[in-house]
Each structure stands twice: as C-alpha cells, then as structure tokens.
C-alpha cells in the first residue's frame, strides 16, 4: 500500500495552481490535507500524474468573516475551523458537525473544503453546506464560478467542479437561526455515518418553528435537504405527535439508496426518520 509515482508541485500562488490544473486537466489532483486522497493513493485507487500541493498558497489559508459571511479557504484545516470563535458565533452547526469528522489526528490536517470537494456521501460537512446554503467558490484559469451548495453535489464522490477547477473557498452566509443539532448513527465514533442529519432552527417567542433547515447524509448518494419536512415543521409547535409525523415523512421522502456491508437502504430510511426526530427535538426543546 504505497502510492504510485507522480509529479509533485507545491506552488506559492493560486495562478500557478490553476496553470497546472489547466495544463494537466483530469490528470492533476489538488492535495490539501490529504486525509482522503493519500489513502486512495496508498490503495492505488487514484493514479494522478501530478499532485498540486496547495499548502503554501497564502490566499487559500484564509479563515475570515466579511460582511457577516464566513469564508473558509481551501487550505484551512478542520481543526482550525473547529477552534475558531468566529465559526462558533456565526456557524454553530459547522462547529457542532466537525467533531464527528474522523478523529483528532485527521482533523489536524484534513480541510473543510477538501471534505466538500471529496463529496463522500456519508460525510458531515457537505450536508452542513446544504443546510446552511453555503456557496462554493471554484476557480480555474478560465475564471471564477460560484456554485450554490444545492447544485454542487451530483452523486457519490461527484461534484459540479470541472477537471481544471479547484474549490478555493466555501462561504457560509450569516444565519438567523439560533439552535443547531447533528444526529448520526455510526458504527463507532469517528466512522463515516450510516445515516445522519444536520440542522438548525429559529423559533418564535411562542415556541413555534419560524425557520428550519435540515440536511441528511449517509442515506443516499449525496447529501439531501429535507424541504418537505422543513415545510411540515414551519409555523408549528413541536409536539411528540408532530415529531412522529415528521419521522414518518422523512422515512418516506428521504432518498435512501445507499447500501453497504454495514447497513441496507431500508435501515438507512428507517433510521433517518428517527434521527430527524431527535435532531428537531434537541433543537426545539
């Protein structure tokens, strides 16, 4: 389990990165934290011609808040994001989700943007971008594209990024929602989830749901926003009866087509309803 040979570049400017990607097309891969890519290399499941290490590109190492928007650059580690007070304040859901990502040692090098670009269907961070309606900023030698989260994830390990593009930044808009929750079932702590839900909510003074966002992961080939469930909850006071209805609605509407040796689709569908029930209850208690 050793990587195949490749050429390695560690440019200091984004333009150089874009140049290499443009020159090599699909044969070049961006190396950020490497927590997904290097295992793939070790298994020789990926055989890129060129690896472009972005560690030295200053502009990709930015974690900043501008006009209420949280901007996380491609080289910012999950651990740095987890510890950021800006993130805790502006994006409590992201802060809540990150401890579920791998283990401490992975988060020390793994990046938030890398997790998004990798698009593992069972990963937490992509679902968080959906729930928070984040914007992905893609760059290539051809220019800049902003892609909303709900148009970014196309399937398992498949995104809207073109071969010559790099995801340079993710932007989380400021949210008016005040409570967040992540609920998931995983075989062990640190494992990819069999099923999970990430959400946030704001309630009225009277305790009714004013606005809610929920996104599932692990259940289907891509993270999915639960619009029907959100609509069912909006304007309502959360009762046990309503939670039962919401759990049933989730089971029926969630696109549960992921199957692996750990769980079949039926289990994922069933447990997705339960997880939504728990997440919503936790947030509205």
């Amino acid at each position: 389990m050793k990587p195949p040979p490749f050429k390695y570049a560690r440019p200091e400017s984004l333009d150089e990165v874009l140049g290499i990607l443009s020159e090599h097309g699909g044969e070049a891969r961006v190396l950020a934290g490497g927590q997904s890519l290097i295992p793939l290399l070790n298994f020789r499941l990926a055989r890129p011609e060129v690896l472009v290490d972005i560690a030295l590109v200053k502009e990709l190492r930015r974690l900043a808040v501008e006009r209420g928007v949280l901007r996380i650059g491609a080289a910012v580690t999950q651990n740095a994001v987890e510890r950021s007070s800006d993130v805790a304040r502006l994006c409590p859901l992201l802060k809540k989700a990150l401890p579920f990502v791998g283990h401490l040692q992975n988060r020390m090098r793994g990046t938030v943007v890398g997790s998004i670009a990798h698009a593992d269907p069972a990963a937490e961070v992509p679902a968080v971008t959906l729930a928070l309606e984040a914007t992905m900023v893609a760059r290539s030698a051809r220019g800049v594209r902003e892609i909303p989260a709900d148009r970014f994830f196309l399937g398992p390990f498949t995104t809207a990024l073109a071969q010559d593009e790099i995801l340079v930044e993710v932007r989380f808009p400021s949210s008016k929602k005040t409570r967040a929750a992540v609920a998931e079932v995983a075989p062990r702590s640190g494992d990819f989830a069999i099923a999970g839900v990430a959400g946030e909510v704001v309630t009225t003074r009277a305790g009714k749901v004013r606005d809610i966002a929920l996104a599932m992961f692990g259940v289907g080939g891509s993270p999915q926003r639960l619009h029907e469930v959100e609509a069912r909850l909006t304007g309502e006071r959360v009762t046990d009866d309503l939670l039962d209805q919401v759990a049933a609605l989730t089971r029926h509407t969630a696109q549960a087509d992921s199957e692996d040796v750990h769980a079949d689709a039926a289990y994922r569908a069933r447990v997705s309803g339960e997880l939504v029930r728990r997440a919503v209850r936790e947030m509205t208690r």
Binding site: R10, L31, Q35, I38, N42, D53, M108, R109
Partner: peptide
C-alpha cells in the same frame, strides 16, 4: 500536532 504519518507525504513535512 498529532497527525497520521502514513497519510502524509514526506515532502509535505518540509
């Protein structure tokens, strides 16, 4: 910081 040296390239430690 604790990291996993089996999924880090030597050159990344420069």
């Amino acid at each position: 910081r604790p990291v996993r040296s089996c999924i880090m390239l030597g050159v990344q430690a420069e």
